[in-house]
Measured scan of single mutants.
Amino acid sequence: MDVFMKGLSKAKEGVVAAAEKTKQGVAEAAGKTKEGVLYVGSKTKEGVVHGVATVAEKTKEQVTNVGGAVVTGVTAVAQKTVEGAGSIAAATGFVKKDQLGKNEEGAPQEGILEDMPVDPDNEAYEMPSEEGYQDYEPEA
């Protein structure tokens, strides 16, 4: 019985440690998101679009440190934060509304985080759909 109880105690310690790591990862992701939003706020009209992409990228980098179902929630929060940063930029006159959601080359930025393969159960990952990809044929 002692062996059984000791095993359960060790398992509990492992769960607590994993929860603490997840909590730490979420806190880091939130900190990076805040950094990115402050970065966007300090940019001029020309830099705002690039700044919004930076927020998304920093958040995406930190999301990889967070495991399990938390990833889905962090990704949703990050996307809403990026959308909010863009709205703030438009409201303050840093950028025109028609410039939001495009990178410096004018290509749409939507789907940055949505296409990231995420499995809350950590069982399997699927690649994003290939609808947006084109076949590449090298020139002879």
Rank of each mutant, 00 (worst) to 15 (best):
G41V: 06
G67C: 07
G132D: 13
V48F: 11
V82D: 05
G51M: 02
D121P: 10
K97S: 09
G106W: 13
G47S: 14
G73C: 09
A27C: 03
T92H: 04
V49I: 14
V40Q: 00
G47M: 11
Y125H: 11
G93R: 08
T64Y: 07
E110H: 04
L8M: 02
K60C: 07
V15H: 01
A140M: 07
T92Q: 14
T33K: 07
V16A: 07
V52S: 05
T92F: 10
V82N: 04
K97P: 13
K96S: 15
V15C: 05
Q79P: 03
P117H: 04
V48R: 03
M116H: 09
V118W: 11
V3C: 09
N122W: 02
Q62A: 10
M5Y: 01
A76P: 03
N103G: 13
A11L: 07
G25Q: 13
S42C: 10
D135S: 11
A78T: 06
A124Q: 14
K102P: 08
D98G: 11
G84D: 13
P108Y: 04
V55C: 11
A107C: 06
V3Q: 03
N65P: 03
P128D: 06
G73H: 11
V63W: 15
A19K: 05
E28A: 05
P120S: 07
E35I: 15
S9H: 05
A69G: 06
Q99G: 08
G93H: 06
H50I: 10
E131F: 05
P120K: 07
T75Y: 14
D98A: 13
V55W: 11
Q79I: 10
G47Y: 08
E20N: 12
A53C: 03
P120Y: 13
V16D: 01
I88E: 05
E83T: 09
E110M: 10
E137G: 11
K43E: 00
D2S: 03
A69M: 10
V3W: 02
D98Q: 10
G67F: 08
T92R: 01
G106E: 09
A124C: 10
Q109V: 05
V74M: 12
V70L: 15
A124F: 06
A78K: 10
E130P: 09
V3K: 03
M1A: 03
A53T: 01
P120E: 07
G86V: 02
K10W: 06
K32H: 04
G68T: 08
T33R: 01
T54N: 08
K34P: 01
V16I: 14
L113S: 13
G41I: 06
T22F: 02
V37C: 07
V95T: 15
G41T: 09
K12D: 00
K23W: 14
D119Q: 13
K34R: 13
G41F: 12
A140P: 15
Q62F: 13
V26R: 00
K10H: 11
M5K: 09
F4H: 00
A53M: 14
D2T: 04
K97V: 14
D2P: 01
T44Q: 01
V49N: 05
F4S: 00
Q24K: 11
G25E: 13
A140H: 07
Y133H: 02
M1T: 00
M5V: 09
Y133F: 14
V77M: 15
G36S: 15
L38C: 10
I88V: 08
G93A: 01
H50N: 13
S42V: 07
L8G: 00
M5G: 02
K96C: 08
A91P: 08
A89P: 07
T72V: 10
V40F: 14
K32R: 06
Y39E: 03
S87L: 13
E126K: 12
Y136F: 14
S42W: 15
E46V: 14
E110K: 02
Q24R: 12
P128T: 07
V3L: 07
F94P: 08
E139A: 15
A11E: 01
V49G: 05
V48Q: 01
A124H: 10
A19I: 15
L113Y: 05
A29H: 05
K21T: 05
V40Y: 15
T33F: 02
E35M: 04
E137I: 11
A85V: 10
P117V: 13
L8N: 00
G31E: 02
D135I: 12
A17Y: 11
V70Y: 06
K80D: 01
D119I: 01
V49Q: 13
K10L: 03
T44L: 05
L8T: 00
D119P: 09
E61R: 02
V15G: 03
E28G: 06
E123R: 09
I88G: 02
G101C: 15
G132E: 09
E83Q: 06
T75G: 10
G93I: 11
V16H: 10
N122M: 05
G86W: 09
L113M: 05
Q109K: 07
P120L: 03
G84W: 11
V37H: 00
L8Y: 07
S42Q: 07
G84C: 00
G132Y: 14
I88N: 00
E123W: 01
A85P: 05
K96L: 14
T54C: 13
D2Y: 12
A89Y: 13
A76T: 13
K80M: 08
V49E: 08
E61P: 05
K60Y: 08
E123T: 13
E131H: 11
V37G: 05
Q62W: 05
A30L: 14
K10E: 02
E28K: 07
G31C: 09
V37K: 01
F4Y: 14
A19T: 04
D135V: 04
Q24T: 11
N122H: 09
P138E: 08
S42H: 00
I88C: 08
Q109G: 02
A30F: 03
K6F: 08
E28R: 07
A17T: 01
E35G: 06
E110W: 11
A78I: 15
A91R: 01
V77F: 14
G73K: 13
K34Q: 03
Y133E: 07
A30E: 00
A76M: 04
K45S: 06
P128W: 02
A27F: 13
G41L: 05
L8W: 14
D135H: 12
T64D: 05
N122I: 05
G106D: 04
V40M: 12
A56P: 05
D115Y: 04
V118A: 02
F4P: 00
P128L: 09
Q62N: 05
P138W: 12
E13F: 08
A11Q: 00
V82K: 09
E137R: 09
G93D: 09
G106N: 10
V52Y: 14
S129I: 04
A29W: 12
E104C: 00
G47T: 12
A89K: 09
G47W: 07
E57S: 02
A89R: 08
P128I: 08
A107G: 05
P117K: 05
P138D: 12
P128M: 03
K58I: 13
K23V: 09
D135F: 08
K23F: 15
T92G: 09
H50A: 03
V77I: 04
G31I: 10
H50P: 08
E130W: 10
G36C: 02
G51T: 11
E83A: 11
S9Y: 03
E105C: 11
H50S: 11
E46K: 11
K34H: 09
K10M: 03
V15Y: 14
G93C: 06
E126H: 10
P120R: 08
